[in-house]
Each structure stands twice: as structure tokens, then as C-alpha cells.
Design a protein around this nucleic acid. Structure first.
Length: 781
DNA sequence: CAGTGAGCGAGCTTCCGCTTGACTT
């Protein structure tokens, strides 16, 4: 009898399942979706109930062809794509393409790749759920409509129009970044004076140790000083001691989003790096599937964990736990991310090791006992006033899961009271404490930090926007479009005050700290800010943080058969299309224009705005008799925050420094950074020079040096033919006009001796056999 | 490589969500 064909989405899964199912089944993968909407006219028939037009993209032709061949000679075809909306749709597309009847073809599901799960799935086949398929089609069509209607609006209304795009997910992601930036810009720090007293006491071994106690905060310096004054000659006595047990519980096993967050915090990985490494681990069979929103573990994994934990740490360290997903939008088609074999504590591959060990620890900890703590709070009263001080300490009684894993937190989640608490020396009731000193230290409130890639993913997940398979690509998209950039920001030095009471004398000290420094954070560009404002103005419903959640409810109704998908799309599309048409007709071009003030020299208006080539400042207006003057903003400047003085500074370039060898020497900033221009030649300026301050005396040696360096790089020049023989970082090469030609290895030995005819031959040779390039993806349909 | 900032308006771009693989330096 012919084998049955079982189709899954992932090839790694196919290999595992084939082993489990044995001889009766040939298991193949379809590599995700096999059809997509055509691009022409959005691939949707707007006049015929939004009937979609699908096609098989070029890169899917091969796999579809193979599946067709195998299907033909197989007994029965079984569809085992993922158990979610997208998976159901893939099964239906497979029916369509392979000529199977969706009403009779066997459809099976499992959300873990274990023998019992798969065997039980095979025992209970069903057929394709067309309601669920329709919910997916509605999702796909709505996203296509939003993307392909909105993007062209930007092309028409933006002055900068290269490759701009908008979409249900990416545009909201940019909005999140943009709004955080504005919150930070609008933030005004408030300072308070925090009271900290240092006392001495004897520890268990009888040694004197210093510990601290906190008092309340004063918003005014005078009040803090008044308090310190009132503490002179005071006695400090312990009046109350509270000892309370506490516990900490482990976090759930990893999902895609939490893995990305922890790998970012603990290992400093970008979300795409995390995914590349996780993919490698998955393909080599080391971990379960890495694109998942589920926190549950299979029963086999739970058994495995029970014995591993008991063996390694002893039975008291084991505690069985079932985690529930907090996220309503989760579809849980797979398990949580976990090692396939808990007995493997590490992996060979050095690149993947740190990520694997993180996953191992997190999984292990998830089934371990709570950590038990003892928290002590001592209240200390002051004889000379009514204030009291609080000393607190924490002792770990049982480490439990902390033996293997501690979850990190983002900056914005750490509350002020949550600083690491140390141990307290043993204290007795009514014990008098000798005071070392009391400090009132000025502390400033902080704005929320900018997003990292991973904290943006977390935010998107909370809002139900995007899916595990799209978090990393979404971030790439908004970076590539230039809406957002990832960079560091230097902090600012800030002074703060300290009042100190020591030996009954109050002294006032000053100190300084760095504030506002950010590393590898997401910043909106002016383009991102301007596009976000525009979309919010004309398409506020799509930009709404809850838009996705709302339409997801409707997709659910479609999936439950309570709502017809094309009626749902119709209700969305009609008003949306009206907004699009209205915007195209009425909206002005977007420039993000901001008036900065008046140029003191000419008396003309100075404005900052988006130009064709990015953000810029301009003196005077288009209709003025005299042409306006323009200057580009620096990378770190923004239309929103630049002031008149900074703008005027930008107009100081180009600076003419003087005359050298009868030619003008000038400095400017170009597309590739600051440069010196002299005699129609250009010399880049290194970081050590500032184009605004560099002098003639500093500039001329640079010209001479760079000229010499260039001469050394030049081996031969054939003026007439415009051919140069040059020495580059990868060895000698030929340059003709703008094109470079590689010299074959065997001729690199004696380049000095190369004659014109030989060089010409090399050029012809390279032209005839051009070096292979990465083939550009073919445009579909 | 080192400019530009406006307007012609050809012909192009673009979405989200499933999956990897085969290019080059």
C-alpha cells in the first residue's frame, strides 16, 4: 500500500514526526504559506465581495511542485499545519493547490511534538475549519488594504518619498517610539532630598558594622536642613522590630517575546540575533520551536524536569507548576521554548551556548520551588523630633529556583523601593544606636527610558499587535524605512546637593552625576515623527493602540461563524476608503514645519522642516525675491528640539579658511561627513577635527598628507584612457571611470609592470565574466 | 562621493504572517 503523505509547516518538525510515525507516513513540509495575494490591484476584487486572487510566488513554486508529485502517488494526504488561524489557512491553500477536497481531507493538530500527542492526533482527524480559514483571509485582506492604500498616500504627501510605507503593525510601532520621545522631551525633573542615616552595631561575630536606615523625603532643601538641625544631639533607639516571611516565585518558561527580552537584558542581543541563534538551536534539535506565544510545557517535558531537578538539587527544590498565558491574543499553537533534553546543560556551538544556557535555566527554574525570604524592618525613633527612620534587611532562607535563575527587569519596572536589600546586624528592642552620620541627598525624578528593541516587542505584545514570527521583521522594517534609529545618547552632567550631619555639625556639599545616557535605544527620526503625526491626524482609528485588539474580536466572530468575513471587511473598508480619498484631496503636503525665530542679520524667518533630502533649516521663504538659504540638520538634531541659536550655527558652513597654492580652502559637511574642499578635490576630516572650528593652519597639512597617501596608493595612471592602477585595502585594483575591476591573483605579483594593453584585457575579461552578485528577489506577479 | 531643497509626472515603491535557504564579502 502506498504511504500516506503528512504535511507540516516546518522541515525540522517533519523530520521528528516522521521518526515518530514510522513506515506508514511520508512527512513533508510546505515551509509556511504557499500562496499570497497578487500585487496588482491589491489582489482583491473590490467590486465582487472582496474576492481574493491568490498566486504561488516564485520561491514557493519548487516546494508546491514537489508536494504535488508526492501527493499524486500517496495513499492519503493528511494536513498537519499549526493549530492556529494561519495554520488552518495554509491547510486550505494546500487543498486548493493539491486538488484536495477540504470537506473530506484529514486535518490533524497537535501543539507539542511528542509521541503521545502525535499518535493521539492521528487517531482524531477532523476536516479543515472554513470559518477559521475565513478569519485568516479577513486578516490578510485587511492588512493588505491598510498597507496598500496608506503607503501611496505617504508617497503623494511626503516631500521625502523613497520607499515610505505604512501598516497596521509598523505604524503603531513607530507611534510608540515617537510618543515616548515626546514624553521624555517634555519631562521636567523634580528633586527631593532623601534622608539616609548610617549607624554602627555589632554583628554576630561581635565586629562593628555600618548599616543604613531611611527617613522620609523632603521636597525643599530648607526643610531637610531643618530636620538635620533638629537631629543634633539626638538619641536613636530601636522601638519596633518586625520580621516577616516572604517568597519569590519563578517566571514562566520562555515565549518568543520573553526570550527576546531576557536575551537583550542579560546577553545584550538584538531581537534578530536572538532569533537567528534560536533558529540554529531549533534546527539542530536542541530546543523546541522558537516562534511561540505559549507558556505551557508538554507532559513529557514536565516529567523530564521533575527527575532532572530532583537528581541535581534534591526533591525539596522541585515544585510542579502550570503557567497560564496572560495574553488574550495568544494562539498557543506550540509549546513554550525549552530544551528538548533537559539533561543537556549546554551545547557545543559557542555562538548558541549562552542563549541555550539561558533557556535551560529559565525552563529549569519554572518547575522549581519558591525562594523563601525573611524580611526584617526595624523602626528607629529620634529623641528630638517626631520623625522616624526605617532600616530594612532581607535574608534568604531557602534559595529554591534562585539557585539557577533570576529574571532581570527593565529600567522602567524598577521601583524606587526595590533597591537591593542587604543584611541587617542583629538588633534588640530599645537598643540605642550610635549615629555615624545623616545625609539628605538630592535625588531627581527620572523620565521613562527610551525603548530597546526588546522592550518595544514587549509593548507590542501587550497591545496584541504583531505575532512571534513578526516581531523581529517589524523592527527591521521601521529601521530600514528610516522612521526609527538605534543609537546611543551621551548623558548630561548634573549637579546635586548633599546636606550632611556629622559630629553635630551640618555641612553642605555638592556632587555631580551623569543623567540621561542611553545605550542602543530606539529613537524616532524626524521622518518618523512627521509621518506619525500625519497618520494620526487623518487615520486616527488605525493608529489607535487598540485598533488591532478590536478587529481581532471581529476575526474571532468570523472564526466562530457568527459573522461573514466579507461583511466585516465591507464595514471596515467603506469608511476607510472615504478617509483615504479625503486625505488625498484635502491634506496639505507634510513638512513638519516649525518656526524657530528671526535671523538677526537679514530679519527673515528661520524655519526647520523636512526637505527632499531630510530634515533641514531654512532662512527666508520660497516666494522671497532672494532664494532662501538651506542647511542640513546634524544626525543628533531634530526639527522638534532645535532652537534658533543651534540653527544659525548650522549656517556657518561652508567656511572659507583661506587660500593655499592659489586655490580656496573650504570646510563643509557632506553626505559622508565633514570634509575639506581644495582645488576641486575633497579630503575627509577625521573625528578629531571639528569643521566649525578647524583653522587654516590645521587644514593645510591634512591636504598635503592625504595627497601623499593618495599618491602612494596610486601605482600607475593612464590619463587619456581614464584608467588608474590603485592599491586598495584588498590589494591592487584597476579603476576606470567610476567602476573598479579586480586583478586576477596570478597578475597581482607584478602589478607595477602591467602595461596598458594587459590592463585593458583584464577589464574586458571582467566585463565578459562579471562577478556573481546576490540575485535580486524577483518581483511577484 | 562631497548637490540639492521645485516641478514636470514615466514607472516604481507598499502590507502582515507563515517558513528557511543560498548568495556574497
Amino acid at each position: 500500500m502506498a504511504k500516506n503523505l503528512l504535511i507540516v509547516e516546518s522541515p525540522a518538525k517533519a523530520r521528528t514526526i516522521e521518526k515518530i510515525l514510522g513506515e506508514d507516513f511520508e512527512v513533508r513540509s510546505c515551509y509556511g504559506h504557499i500562496r499570497d495575494l497578487e500585487k496588482e490591484d491589491m489582489g482583491i476584487d473590490l467590486k465582487n465581495k472582496y474576492k481574493p486572487r491568490y498566486f504561488v510566488p516564485d520561491e514557493k513554486q519548487k516546494v508546491v511542485r514537489e508536494l504535488k508529485t508526492i501527493a499524486k502517488k500517496s495513499g492519503e494526504v493528511w494536513l498537519a499545519t499549526d493549530e492556529d488561524r494561519e495554520g488552518e489557512a495554509i491547510s486550505w491553500h494546500l487543498c486548493e493547490v493539491l486538488g484536495l477536497d477540504p470537506n473530506t481531507t484529514k486535518r490533524i493538530v497537535f501543539h507539542e511534538i511528542t509521541k503521545p500527542a502525535i499518535q493521539s492526533a492521528v487517531q482524531h482527524p477532523r476536516t479543515v475549519d472554513m470559518n477559521l480559514v475565513n478569519a485568516q483571509q479577513a486578516r490578510r485582506i485587511l492588512d493588505r488594504i491598510v498597507g496598500f492604500e496608506l503607503s501611496p498616500v505617504l508617497w503623494r504627501k511626503m516631500s521625502m518619498k523613497n520607499n515610505l510605507s505604512a501598516g497596521r503593525v509598523q505604524s503603531v510601532a513607530v507611534r510608540i517610539i515617537a510618543e515616548r520621545e515626546r514624553e521624555i522631551n517634555a519631562f521636567a525633573a523634580v528633586s527631593t532630598f532623601r534622608i539616609e542615616a548610617l549607624f554602627t552595631a555589632k554583628d554576630i561575630s561581635g565586629k562593628n558594622v555600618v548599616f543604613s536606615a531611611e527617613g522620609r523625603k523632603f521636597s525643599r532643601e530648607a526643610d531637610a536642613e531643618e530636620f538635620l538641625k533638629s537631629c543634633t544631639n539626638a538619641k536613636f533607639a530601636v522601638t519596633d522590630i518586625q520580621v516577616r516571611p516572604g517568597k519569590k516565585s519563578p517566571a514562566a518558561p520562555f515565549t518568543t517575546s520573553t526570550l527576546q527580552q531576557e536575551a537583550s537584558r542579560k546577553l545584550g542581543y538584538s531581537v534578530s540575533r536572538t532569533m537567528v541563534l534560536a533558529q540554529k538551536l531549533y534546527e539542530s534539535g536542541q530546543i523546541t520551536y522558537m516562534r511561540t506565544d505559549s507558556v505551557s510545557l508538554s507532559e513529557t517535558a514536565m516529567e523530564n524536569l521533575k527527575s532532572e531537578i530532583s537528581n541535581k538539587f534534591g526533591r525539596p527544590y522541585y515544585q510542579q507548576r502550570a503557567f497560564k498565558n496572560k495574553n488574550e491574543s495568544a494562539q498557543e499553537a506550540h509549546e513554550a521554548i525549552r530544551p528538548t533534553y533537559m539533561e543537556n546543560m549546554s551545547v557545543e556551538d559557542a555562538d548558541c551556548r549562552r542563549l541555550y544556557e539561558l533557556i535551560w535555566k529559565r525552563t529549569m527554574a519554572s518547575q522549581m520551588a519558591d525562594a523563601e525570604l525573611e524580611k526584617t524592618i526595624a523602626i528607629i525613633q529620634i529623641s528630638t523630633n517626631k520623625e522616624e527612620l526605617k532600616a530594612s534587611g532581607e535574608v534568604l532562607k531557602f534559595d529554591g529556583f534562585l539557585k539557577v535563575y533570576r529574571e532581570d527587569k527593565d529600567d522602567d519596572e524598577i521601583t524606587e523601593d526595590e533597591h537591593q536589600e542587604g543584611m541587617l546586624p542583629p538588633l534588640g528592642l530599645n537598643q540605642l544606636l550610635p549615629l555615624a552620620e545623616i545625609n539628605a541627598t538630592e535625588r531627581f525624578s527620572r523620565p521613562l527610558p527610551r525603548y530597546t528593541e526588546a522592550s518595544l516587542v514587549k509593548k507590542l505584545e501587550e497591545l496584541g499587535i504583531g505575532r512571534p514570527s513578526t516581531y523581529a521583521p517589524t523592527i527591521s522594517t521601521i529601521l530600514k524605512r528610516g522612521y526609527v534609529e538605534k543609537r546611543d545618547k551621551e548623558g548630561m552632567i548634573r549637579q546635586f546637593r548633599i546636606l550632611k550631619l556629622k559630629n553635630n555639625i551640618i555641612s553642605k556639599l555638592g556632587s555631580q552625576e551623569t543623567t540621561g545616557a542611553e545605550k542602543s535605544k530606539l529613537f524616532p527620526t524626524d521622518l518618523g515623527l512627521v509621518v506619525t503625526d500625519f497618520l494620526k491626524l487623518y487615520f486616527d482609528d488605525i493608529m489607535d493602540y487598540h485598533f488591532t485588539a478590536r478587529i481581532e474580536e471581529e476575526f474571532d466572530e468570523v472564526a466562530n461563524g457568527k459573522l461573514a468575513w466579507n461583511i466585516m471587511i465591507d464595514e471596515f473598508y467603506l469608511p476607510f476608503k472615504k478617509d483615504v480619498d479625503n486625505t488625498i484631496e484635502k491634506a496639505e503636503r507634510i513638512s513638519g514645519e516649525r518656526e524657530l525665530g528671526i535671523d538677526p542679520v537679514t530679519g527673515k524667518k528661520v524655519i526647520a522642516r523636512m526637505g527632499r533630502y531630510g530634515p533641514m533649516v531654512q532662512i527666508g521663504e520660497q516666494n522671497d525675491e532672494e532664494k532662501p538659504k538651506f542647511a542640513k540638520l546634524k544626525n543628533t538634531q531634530s526639527i522638534e528640539t532645535i532652537n534658533l541659536a543651534e540653527a544659525m550655527e548650522l549656517f556657518r558652513l561652508p567656511r572659507i579658511l583661506g587660500s593655499f597654492e592659489a586655490n580656496e580652502v573650504s570646510v563643509n559637511i557632506g553626505r559622508f561627513g565633514p570634509y575639506i574642499a581644495h582645488d576641486k578635490k575633497f579630503y575627509s576630516l577625521g573625528k578629531e577635527f571639528d569643521p566649525y572650528t578647524i583653522s587654516f593652519e590645521e587644514a593645510t597639512p591634512i591636504i598635503v598628507e592625504k595627497r601623499v597617501a593618495k599618491e602612494q596608493r596610486t601605482i600607475k595612471v593612464f590619463e587619456k584612457e581614464k584608467i588608474q592602477l590603485l592599491r586598495g585595502p584588498y590589494g591592487p585594483y584597476i579603476k576606470q571611470g567610476l567602476r573598479n575591476y579586480k586583478i586576477p591573483k596570478e597578475k597581482q605579483e607584478h602589478v607595477e609592470g602591467l602595461e596598458l594593453n594587459e590592463i585593458k584585457a583584464i577589464i574586458e575579461d571582467v566585463k565578459a565574466n562579471p562577478p556573481k552578485r546576490v540575485p535580486r528577489k524577483k518581483k511577484s506577479s
